[in-house]
C-alpha cells in the first residue's frame, strides 16, 4: 500500500546515499578523465611496451561487464596487490578505470580530429614535441571531446548503483535499507528514481548545449 508519509520520509533517508553516489561519480570521473588521457597519449605516441599493455587493458575492460570488473577489482586485484581499500574506494577506482578505457578512445578521436597541418606548422616552427602536445594539439583536441566526456559522466552517475554489489550504500542502497526497515519498498525506490532523474536530466541538457556549441565552432 503506497504511503505518502513514507515517500516524504525517504527523502532525508536517501540524502547520505546521494552524497556517496555524487562522491563516487566525481572521483570516478576525475580518474577516468586523467587516466583516459594518459592511455590515449601512450597509444598515440606509441610508447613501446606500454602501448601494447594499454591496448590489451582497454580491449579487456571494454569486452567485460562493469559488474564483473567491480567484483574482480575488490576480490581479486586488491588482495593480489596486497592492499585493502574500503568498498567505496575500490568500487570507485574500478568505475574510473572502466570509464578511462572509453574516454581514452574519445581523446584519441579528438586528437585525430586536429588537422595534420597543425602538426606540420609545429614542426616547421621547430616546436619541441612536448610543447606541440601541450600548447597546440591538446588545447584543440580537448574542447572537441568535452560533450562526449559529459555523456560518459552522466552514464557513470547512473551506473554507481552497481557499487552496491560490494556493499557501498549509495542512493539505491539507502532506498533498499529504508524499504527493509519500513516493510515497504516502493516509496524509497520511487524517490531514488526521482533523484536520478532530477540530476541526470538537467545534466543531459547541459551536455546537449555543449555539443551544439562545439558543432557550431
Amino acid at each position: 500500500m503506497w504511503s505518502w508519509e513514507l515517500f516524504w520520509d525517504s527523502f532525508s533517508a536517501l540524502l547520505p546515499g546521494l552524497w556517496i553516489t555524487f562522491a563516487a561519480t566525481v572521483c570516478g570521473a576525475l580518474l577516468a578523465y586523467v587516466l583516459g588521457l594518459v592511455f590515449a597519449l601512450i597509444r598515440q605516441v606509441r610508447v613501446p611496451v606500454l602501448s601494447q599493455i594499454t591496448f590489451g587493458l582497454v580491449e579487456f575492460i571494454r569486452s567485460t561487464p562493469l559488474l564483473v570488473q567491480i567484483f574482480f577489482f575488490y576480490w581479486v586485484v586488491q588482495p593480489w596487490m596486497g592492499v585493502q581499500w574500503s568498498a567505496f574506494w575500490s568500487g570507485t577506482i574500478a568505475l574510473g578505470l572502466h570509464y578511462a578505457c572509453y574516454t581514452s578512445e574519445v581523446y584519441r578521436a579528438g586528437i585525430d580530429a586536429v588537422p595534420k597541418g597543425q602538426w606540420e606548422a609545429s614542426t616547421a616552427l621547430s616546436l619541441p614535441r612536448r610543447r606541440t602536445w601541450t600548447g597546440v594539439i591538446l588545447p584543440q583536441a580537448i574542447p572537441r571531446v568535452l560533450p562526449a566526456l559529459g555523456n560518459y559522466t552522466i552514464s557513470m552517475f547512473k551506473e554507481t548503483p552497481l557499487l552496491l554489489a560490494i556493499g557501498v550504500i549509495d542512493i539505491v542502497g539507502a532506498a533498499k535499507d529504508f524499504g527493509a526497515d519500513h516493510y515497504s519498498v516502493e516509496e524509497a525506490y520511487t524517490m531514488a528514481g526521482i533523484f536520478f532523474l532530477v540530476l541526470s536530466f538537467p545534466s543531459s541538457i547541459l551536455v546537449r548545449r555543449l555539443e551544439r556549441r562545439f558543432v557550431k565552432h
Partner: peptide, 28 residues
C-alpha cells in the same frame, strides 16, 4: 634555419595573433 608558409595558413586557432607569432621565438 628554415621557415615555411603553407597553402592553408595553419595558424594555431587556440592562440591569438601575437601568441601565434611569439610562441616559437620564445620556446625555440
Amino acid at each position: 634555419r628554415i621557415g615555411m608558409v603553407f597553402q592553408q595558413f595553419n595558424l594555431f586557432p587556440n592562440m591569438n595573433v601575437l601568441q601565434n607569432i611569439t610562441e616559437a621565438p620564445i620556446r625555440v
